[in-house]
Amino acid sequence: MALDVYKKIFPKDAKIQPSLVIFYFGGNDSADPKFPLSPNVPLDEYVENMRKIALHIKAYVLTLECLSEKTRLIMLSSPAVNEKLVEYYGDNRGRTNERGKIYSEAGIKLDQQLGVPVIDLWSALYERPNVFRDGMHLTKEGSEIVFNKIKDVISKAEWEPSLDWNKMPNEFANIYG
C-alpha cells in the first residue's frame, strides 16, 4: 500500500523537505501468505518496494533526483514478535520470528547496499520480556528500545548539519553566560 502513497507523502516539488525520515516496514509484509487475511508481500517484492521508496526519499546515485540533499534516512528492519502473545490474542495471520528474521536480514542487506543507516529491530526485540503488548505492538519498554536505537544512530551519524541535539548550535548560548 505504501507504493500507492509515498510520492504523495514525500512530493519532490514540496517547498520544505523533511530533515529525517525513519522508514519501517516488514512486520506485516513478512506474515505467512497461507493464513487468511495475510498482509504478506513476497520477499523479492518487499525488497524492491523498499528500494523504490528509499531511492525516492534519498537517492544515493548521482543521476537520480532525491527529495533534498539534507534529508536523512534511517531504516528499521522487520521486527521480531512474541509468538505466544500473538497466538493468545488470536490475530496471528502467520507472523513468526522465523519469517520476520528472513525479511529483517533482506532489509538489512538492502540498506547496506544503499549506504543507509539501519537498525536491526528483529535482534533488538527478539525474546526480550515486556516489549510487546499483544505480541506485535510495542509496550513503553519496547518503544524505549526503539527510541534509544534511533538516538544512537543519530548521535553517531556524520551528517552535516548534525541532527544530534548535543551537536547542534545553540543560538542563545550567550544569554546565560
Rank of each mutant, 00 (worst) to 15 (best):
V61H: 14
D164R: 00
L73H: 07
L110G: 03
L73D: 04
Q17R: 08
K58T: 14
N92S: 13
K8R: 10
K109W: 08
P79G: 10
F10L: 11
I150A: 02
I108A: 02
A54M: 14
F35M: 09
E69L: 10
P11I: 07
E83Y: 03
R128S: 12
G27P: 00
E65W: 00
F132Q: 04
Y46V: 09
L67N: 08
S143P: 01
L73R: 04
N170T: 00
I108N: 05
P161D: 06
E48S: 13
L67Y: 12
G142I: 03
K15I: 02
D152W: 13
N166Q: 13
E98D: 12
G27D: 01
D111G: 14
V41A: 03
Y6G: 08
S77T: 10
Q112N: 15
V41S: 02
M168D: 07
L20D: 06
P169M: 12
K34M: 10
E158L: 11
L73M: 08
G94W: 06
Q17A: 09
R133A: 13
P39T: 03
D4K: 13
L64Q: 10
N174Y: 05
L76N: 09
D4H: 12
P18H: 08
H137P: 00
M168P: 00
N130K: 13
K70S: 10
L37E: 14
L67C: 05
R51E: 11
N92W: 00
